[in-house]
Amino acid sequence: MKLSVNGKEHDVSVSDDMPLLWVLRDVLGLTGTKFGCGMAQCGACTVLVDGQPVRSCVRPAAAVEGRAVTTIEGLSLQGDHPVQRAWAEVDVVQCGYCQSGQILAAAALLQAKPKPSDADVDAALSGNLCRCGTYQRIRSAVHRAAELMEG
């Protein structure tokens, strides 16, 4: 099957049911997208498909053929997407494992709603678990990213 990931075309030969997550990680070597639960409970595997967030652990790669997949590696060239800059400024990360998913979920929110309220942040990002408890800083960083995007 043909996959478009971070603007690059890939031709991969995998079983029809192989989740996008494992194609990204084990076939394409893009390990920034994380495995946390395998059942869309934790959000660590979040990627963007045509700009919309998708839990790649429960989406067969075959289902995204012909669509543009963006992973954390492709969110920005220099790690300087406004969400990433805000994350650094607010010192969000701890162990860091969930943060790829958090950042992509936040980017999707800001795409859909450039000036989110606290309730908007809670509604968009409560699908992403963080065992270290960085939630409070995530809230702040999303608002900061909104400011940075406004310029």
């Binding site: 990680r25 070597g29 893009l30 390990t31 920034g32 997208t33 994380k34 495995f35 992973t71 954390i72 590696e73 969110l75 790690g79 990433q84 994350w87 650094a88 010192d91 969000v92 990360v93 860091g96 494992y97 943060q99 790829s100 950042i103």
Partner: peptide, 21 residues
Amino acid sequence: TRRLDTPEKITGRAQFGLDVQ
């Protein structure tokens, strides 16, 4: 003082055990 491991953890470059290839 802000964390030194942020750049790799916000870009997916940080290597966790599961990422070893």
